[in-house]
């Protein structure tokens, strides 16, 4: 563990990313204390620019405090991003590993299943799913997960396909290790770095996807999310830039930090690479 942390900390960007991410998490946790009351309350004049009327980041078209929205929105957006990514990873990694390691007909069946989901334009499928189940936080997470897992499955499969013919796997097979232990003990750790990179991108794309749904009027109307803020700010961008810029920055920082952390993790999880890197640096 200590070594892992040392490897992680060697990547300065990752540490910065972690700091930002912790900051965002703190904002999410402290939102009810920082901004008591509902973020939907009409607290001031509509379209007050940042700094005026005591509103740090300005108000929106109904006079709601943008800063309060961002603080409360952090909870919803992080939740949507994290939960849907976890669900998508579980589906994607297990199917991809299954297909890539076993190959043959199992690979065939899984890949046809994956293809099936990939052929439907994911955004349209997400809209369709949310429309059928009516937009609630649950249906949105479900829809995002359903459209997000195929890339994971494909990348994991590709990794497995390429790793399973490697010497170390063949060695384990010769030693008579069980398939399960080969998959999770030998291959998966070596396939982790693209998965980790992908996962961090997926949290981000889940947040963006939620914002796109929100923008099309298919967000959960009772949940203040960053997507909602951007969506509602988008059409008044020429009148009130602050309404979409600040939530945009919030998303940007979060995505950035997630990626930096993901990279640090990938370095820390892949010691060979890190050694190489350390040698160069």
């Amino acid at each position: 563990m200590k070594e892992f942390w040392r490897n992680f900390a060697r990547n300065r960007g990752a540490v910065v990313g972690l700091a930002i991410l912790l900051g965002v998490l703190a904002l999410a946790l402290l939102a009810p204390l920082l901004y008591p009351g509902s973020p939907w309350d009409m607290a001031g004049m509509p379209f007050a620019p940042p700094g005026e009327m005591g509103m740090l980041l300005g108000t929106d078209s109904l006079g709601r405090d943008v800063a309060a929205g961002i603080a409360h929105g952090a909870r919803v957006s992080l939740l949507v991003g994290a939960v849907s990514t976890v669900v998508a990873l579980v589906i994607g990694v297990s199917l991809g590993a299954f297909a890539g390691y076993l190959g043959g007909w199992a690979d065939d069946v899984v890949m046809r299943f994956t293809e099936f989901f990939q052929t439907i334009p994911s955004f349209v499928l997400a809209i369709l799913l949310v429309a059928i189940f009516t937009p609630t936080i649950g249906s949105i997470v479900f829809a995002i997960a359903v459209v997000s897992w195929p890339p994971v499955a494909r990348v994991v499969r590709a990794e497995f396909l390429s790793l399973r013919s490697r010497e170390f796997v063949q060695a384990s097979e010769v030693l008579g290790k069980s398939r399960l232990s080969i998959v999770f003990g030998d291959i998966l750790p070596n396939a982790l770095s693209p998965i980790v990179v992908l996962a961090s991108l997926m949290v981000a794309s889940a947040i963006l996807l939620e914002s796109a749904l929100s923008f099309l009027g298919l967000g959960d109307p009772n949940m203040m999310s960053w997507g909602f803020l951007i969506g509602s700010g988008r059409s008044v961008i020429r009148i009130a830039w602050w309404m979409s810029v600040f939530p945009g920055i919030a998303i940007f920082l979060t995505v950035l930090s997630l990626n930096l952390v993901g990279e640090g993790l990938s370095d820390a999880l892949n010691p060979r690479l890190t050694r190489n890197r350390g040698g160069k640096a």
Binding site: W40, D41, M42, S61, L62, I127, A131, T134, P135, G217, L218, G219, D220, P221, N222, S232
Partner: peptide, 26 residues
């Protein structure tokens, strides 16, 4: 959409809880 949000806040003032449902045209 703004109108729905405005109505929710207006009715909340008199103690009526309006739960919004957003749907597509169909």
């Amino acid at each position: 959409t703004r109108l729905g949000e405005f109505l929710r806040q207006s009715l909340r003032q008199v103690g009526v809880d309006l739960q919004l449902e957003s749907v597509d045209v169909g």
